[in-house]
Design a protein around this nucleic acid. Structure first.
Length: 275
DNA sequence: AACCGCGCCTGTTCGC
DNA sequence: TGCGAACAGGCGCGGT
């Protein structure tokens, strides 16, 4: 589920709740998630103070004051529950010196928890090859054009490639391409520079609007606070197969929003306005 | 080298 | 209503 806007929202919630707090207990209930969680994680965290958080793509990093960081990825079904009760599929739990409690709940176990040295954060295997942050200065039309150059894969699949740009998932790839008017089937290496410039702007705008809305809530996804994000109401194409496209309702040649499968993932688009 | 398809898991939704 | 099938926001791997 969680793509960049949802991860950013979750991270802000964790930051407000945990930064500055001392961890008084940590328990690993189930180490066999996507990768085996290092068994020393609870011992390393217990007694440590939380210094802060940062996000890299869909990953969160929590720094503590003993030189270690925790790498967190929510996978498809992961949630961070603040001050909740023990829940089903709660694989990891922290308690803080102010009585706070944070549970990592992940039914499908596609999530990741890992322990690493803070100084080595960006050298972690899962982060080392990651592309630029789409909301940062390092992401620009020339950079995206260089990453797409020569690529024979459809642009939709290329945007899901975290080496090209970090943090975009299935929902925001469809949404950004709709807003940029680019056919998701177009080969990544064959998009003109002006259209790449527009795509960069629309990726940024889409992600920023989604963050402002607290992300998109689908099924059981909630912010750590328990609030629902509401960006799903602003989706233009995702999950809207068969509906009229808002750009061309009823116009000749508009067959409504289509759903296709690309690289095993669903893609939604308007065949009239996306070229 | 680059790309596609599969598998990992569980829960929910869909269609008969 | 009940049941199995299909599908779900991600990502790494193996095969081509």
């Amino acid at each position: 589920m969680p793509e960049l806007p949802e991860v950013e929202t979750v991270m802000r919630g964790l930051d407000g709740h945990l930064t500055g707090r001392r961890i008084v207990s940590a328990r690993l209930n189930r180490p066999d998630i996507r990768f085996v969680v290092p068994p020393e994680l609870p011992a390393v965290l217990t007694g440590a103070k939380v210094l802060g958080f940062r996000r890299r793509g869909k990953f969160m990093l929590m720094r503590v004051d003993n030189g270690f960081s925790v790498l967190i990825h929510l996978g498809m079904s992961g949630r961070m529950l603040l001050d909740g009760m023990p829940a089903l599929h709660e694989h990891f739990v922290l308690e803080t010196d102010d009585g706070g409690r944070v549970g990592f709940v992940d039914p499908r176990r596609f999530g990741v928890l890992d322990l690493l040295r803070t100084a080595d954060e960006d050298r972690h295997k899962l982060l080392a090859a990651m592309g630029p942050e789409p909301l940062g200065n390092a992401f620009s039309a020339p950079v995206l054009a260089a990453a797409l150059k020569g690529k024979a894969t459809p642009i939709k699949a290329a945007l899901l490639d975290q080496r090209v740009v970090a943090g975009i998932g299935n929902i925001y790839a469809s949404e950004a391409l709709f807003r940029a008017g680019i056919d998701p089937r177009r080969l990544a290496g064959k998009i003109s520079r002006p259209r790449i410039e527009l795509l960069v702007r629309e990726i940024r705008a889409t992600l920023l609007e989604a963050i402002a809305a607290g992300g998109s809530s689908l099924r059981d996804y909630v912010q750590p606070s328990g609030e629902l994000g509401y960006f799903q109401h602003a989706w233009k194409v995702y999950g809207r197969a068969g509906e009229a496209c808002e750009r061309c309702p009823g116009l000749p040649g508009c067959a409504g929003i289509k759903s296709i499968t690309q690289a095993g993932r669903s893609t939604f688009y308007c065949a009239r306005t996306q070229r």
